[in-house]
Amino acid sequence: MLILTCPHCGIAADETELAPGGEAHLKRAGPEASDVEFEAYMFARRNPLGVHFERWRHAMGCGKWFIAARATDTLEVFGTYPARTEAPPADLVRRIRRKRPEWEGLP
């Protein structure tokens, strides 16, 4: 069972109180993008064994979106932060790098 702390209301919420929103930090293919690039943006998703960033909504709570950084192999949660951002907070990235030196970082 996954427990994520909502950064908006501070509740350690059970997975069943949350609605999943898929991979985080996707960048929309621009207006001049090719069909192949747009298809990749729409459908291609990373499925890493290790560090992963996911969007979640605190559906049975404050209703706000947040992003969780966690490990898909150990279910360790590195941290959560509000979704109104384009990149993870620097201190969280440092913390992940300390624990997972092999992590290649976000694309």
Partner: peptide, 9 residues
């Protein structure tokens, strides 16, 4: 505490 009771908010 906003949560769920069984399946309902």
């Amino acid at each position: 505490r906003r949560t769920r009771l069984a399946q309902i908010p």
